[in-house]
Structures are given as C-alpha cells and as structure tokens.
Computed example of a mutant assay.
Amino acid sequence: MKILFLEDDDVLLKDLVQALEEAKHSVTTCKSGQAAIYLAGSRDYHVLIFDRMVDGIDGLNALRILRSKGVRTPALFLTAMTGVDDRVDGLEAGADDYLAKPFAVRELLARVMALGRRGQYGEASASLVVGDIEIDRLKRSVTRAGIPVLLQVQEFKLLEYLMLHAGQVVTRSMLLEGVWSYHFDVRTNIVESHMSRLRAKLCANGSPDPIQTLRRIGYRFETGQP
C-alpha cells in the first residue's frame, strides 16, 4: 500500500518507515502539515499516518482541511496526546483510528492493514441507498428525497455505519468501535449527541425519522419508507 506519513521526529520516522517498508508498503514522508495537505490532496494514497504535534499547521488541522476538500483517504493519528478529549478531537477531525504513543510496531502494522482494507471496501461501494436517503461515499455527500443534507464528518460516518447495517440492531458499543474506533466504552454522551444532531438534520424538512431507538438495546435504521 501507498502510505503518507506526517512525523517530525527523525528517529521515530526512520524506524517506522523501515518497519512499514519491510511489510511491503511504499512510504512517502513529510514533516509539516502544509506538506501533508499538498501531498494528500495531489496524490493517491491508501492510508495517512499523521502525528498531531508538528510545526506550522498541526496534524489535527491538516486532516480537517483535507476532509473539507473531500479527501477521504483512511487516516490514523499517531500521537502522545492520549486523553479522552484528545481522542475525541482527533476522531471529530475525520480520523479513522487513533494510536497512542508508546505503541507496539506490530499493532501499528495491523491497524494500517485494517485501514487499507476499509478504504478498498469504500471504493467498491461508492453509493449507499436506503429508502429515500442516498449517500455518496466518495464525495461525502448526502441527499434525502433529492434534497442535500449537510453533515459534519462524524455525523456522516454515523449515518454511513447505520446504512451499512440497515435493518439490523446496532448497539452503542458497536457504534463506538465502528464510527469512533473506540475499543472501550468512553463515559461520554458522544453517541447520543451525534445521533440527536443526525436525526434533526435528516428530518429537517418534515420527513419521518428513519432511526428507531430500541431502549437499553441500541438503534435500527429502517430499510424502507416508514
């Protein structure tokens, strides 16, 4: 796979690039957010690996800018900023995964492979349609009955996950892992608050709510017109 690696620690960068190349990946490196924005926006990569704390435009804002430009390459934050709020900020900026330093190189390689597979799956299924709701996964756009619905990055990912599992019950834990890449239950209302905003936007024109709440169980996205 082709990987773009944003990191300004020369020692760490050298070691990780060697490990990635030994795993048969092709790695392009850069040390500033400005360079990452240019490279990711002008060339095709399978995975982005960004450190958050770099000079100039930091990794967090670099990814925000790329997502606003429609770049949807799966992205992993690799950082020493490990607090829950830091993780939430990273995922809200459009990251698909978040790995805290220090870490095992084997885990990084496994996560990179998982993100690469996710990107390939997304390319194979660019459009999703359930009832009168359609999302374009390449353009990250949503319409309902032909009317555009403007969503933030995590709202889009939440809707995408629900539509991929339309007709199925999804639990809070499933959403935390599938949308926010949390493999543990964070003690926040992140799922509930995003679900509320998503529902409001999908129903803004008086359309019925396609998301059913199953008390103490989870949610189900309806497969057809209510």
Rank of each mutant, 00 (worst) to 15 (best):
H165Q: 09
S196P: 07
E155T: 07
H46R: 13
R137W: 00
E177G: 05
V179Q: 02
R220T: 11
L158W: 03
M113D: 11
V191K: 07
V130K: 04
L202H: 09
I37E: 04
S173Y: 03
Q120S: 13
D132E: 14
L202A: 08
V71E: 09
R144Q: 10
F5P: 01
L76H: 01
R140I: 03
Q18S: 13
W180N: 03
T213K: 02
K101G: 11
A36P: 09
A104R: 15
V17R: 13
L109V: 05
S127T: 15
V142Y: 06
I3S: 01
I147P: 00
K2S: 12
G218C: 06
D132Q: 10
T29S: 14
M113N: 11
L99N: 05
Q225Y: 12
D85A: 12
D9Y: 04
L115K: 00
D8M: 10
A93D: 05
D15K: 13
S32R: 15
A80C: 11
V84C: 06
T82M: 07
K14I: 12
S32E: 12
I49V: 14
L91Q: 00
V84M: 12
H194M: 12
C203L: 06
R64N: 06
G59T: 11
F184D: 07
L108T: 10
E222K: 14
E21R: 13
A93G: 02
S173P: 03
G56D: 08
K69L: 10
P148D: 09
L176D: 04
D185G: 00
R43T: 09
V130D: 00
D55G: 15
S125Q: 13
R215V: 14
Y98G: 03
R197P: 09
R215D: 08
L4D: 02
H25I: 05
Q225P: 09
T28R: 08
V71A: 00
G83V: 06
L202F: 02
P208W: 05
R67Y: 01
T213D: 05
T29D: 10
T73N: 01
K31A: 14
I3K: 02
A80Q: 12
D89Q: 13
M81L: 15
R199E: 07
R117K: 13
